[in-house]
């Protein structure tokens, strides 16, 4: 039972991470950020992605486990 809970928590974290990643891309495209800010945002997102993969490996959760199938609505995350 514990693993499903971990998978659910990691799904929510992954959802927020991908959402923030897209928002960061939009903000960078606006062009009103300094190069240093853009670099920091990129580094932070990269570290977050690595940390997410470590957590998934640590708990034995496959990346596709994080993706929920919402029936007629499609999927929660992209099936990359």
């Amino acid at each position: 039972m514990g693993r499903d809970l971990v998978a659910l928590v990691l799904t929510v974290v992954e959802l927020l991470r991908q959402l923030m990643e897209r928002q960061a891309i939009r903000r960078v495209e606006q062009g009103d950020l300094s190069d240093e800010q853009v670099e920091e945002i990129g580094t932070t997102l990269m570290l977050l992605d690595q940390r997410m993969k470590e957590l998934c490996d640590q708990h034995g959760v496959r990346p596709e486990d994080l993706n929920l199938d919402l029936g007629p609505l499609g999927t929660l995350l992209p099936r990359d």
Partner: peptide, 20 residues
């Protein structure tokens, strides 16, 4: 019959557009 087939857009993209 109900909507046939999943809508092609992942929910996270919809949320992104809503926020935008």
């Amino acid at each position: 019959e109900p909507l046939s087939g999943p809508i092609g857009v992942p929910l996270v993209d919809l949320l992104d557009r809503v926020l935008a």
